[in-house]
Structures are given as C-alpha cells and as structure tokens.
Amino acid sequence: MIPLCLPATLDSLDEIGKYIVAATTEAKLETKPAYGLRLAVDEIATNIITHGYEETGKAGNVTVSGEITDSSLTIVLEDSGIPFDPLSRKLPSEDELNLPLEERDIGGLGIFLVLKGVDSFSYEFINGKNRNMFTMNLPGKA
C-alpha cells in the first residue's frame, strides 16, 4: 500500500484509522482482528503524537505504511519524535484491571490494548526514527 505521511497531530488519527480500515479490508481480515489492529495502531499513534511531539513542542510527521503478503498484514508507523519504546511502559496487572474505577490509575491501558489486539508488535529506534510494527496473521495462511 502507498505510505501515508501526516502531520503529528491528534486530528490525523482519523486518517490513520481510515488507512487501517482500507488495509484490513484489502487483506480480508475478519471484523474482530481488524478492529484489534485499528485500536492498536490508534493507541501507538496517540502515544507518538502526544509524548513524541505535542508535549515536547516539536512539530513533525508520522508515516503509516502497510504491506500485505500471502500470510500476513503488517502496518508500520514511523516518526522522528523523541525515542520512545512503548514496550517500556508498565502493563496493568490483573489485580489493577479488577480495581473499581474510582481507585484506578489513569495510565497503562493503551499498550495493554495494543498487545491484546495484534498477533505481534515490535519497536525499534533506527536511523533516528521510531519504528513501530504491527503484524496480523492472515487466516488459514500463517
């Protein structure tokens, strides 16, 4: 798929979402995994835009690209914001997930949803860029 380069602002989440819907439709992914992938990409894009750009006062772009093979759909998000490994975030424990809302910490849910939503997720910082990669196995082919 043709990569899409967008300004690193929250308004771009909508366009990123549409790109993922187009990719999952083209890959013929079923509704549940398609939603999981869209959610995972939305969560990481939000982190990139919020922590990598808006909080640091930096302007820039985020690029989303997709590749469909016989066995998988891979989405890559790339940005030049501050290096940030989402996997370094602490995941909520089972006990924390069971806490009543009035006692819950407000963070940590995003990366939890990422890991629940995709078949594999990886992060690397390479050539001055954050590279977040999401892979979905295609049914009956993996």
């Binding site: 979402g17 939603y35 869209r38 959610l39 939305d42 969560e43 939000t46 009543p100 809302l101 009035e102 819950r104 407000i106 849910l109 995003g110 939890f112 949803l113």
Partner: peptide
C-alpha cells in the same frame, strides 16, 4: 463504533469526578 484507551480514561475521570456513589 470505536473506543480507545483515551475514552476509557474519561470513564475513570467520570467516576472519580462524580463520586463512587454515582452508578455508571
């Protein structure tokens, strides 16, 4: 049709703002 963690955080905010006695 779509709910991300930012929306979940607003639900936590709602409970904390309105108080534990307000059922959601």
């Amino acid at each position: 049709d779509f709910l991300a963690s930012a929306g979940l955080r607003v639900l936590i905010f709602a409970k904390q703002k309105m108080g534990a006695g307000v059922d959601i």
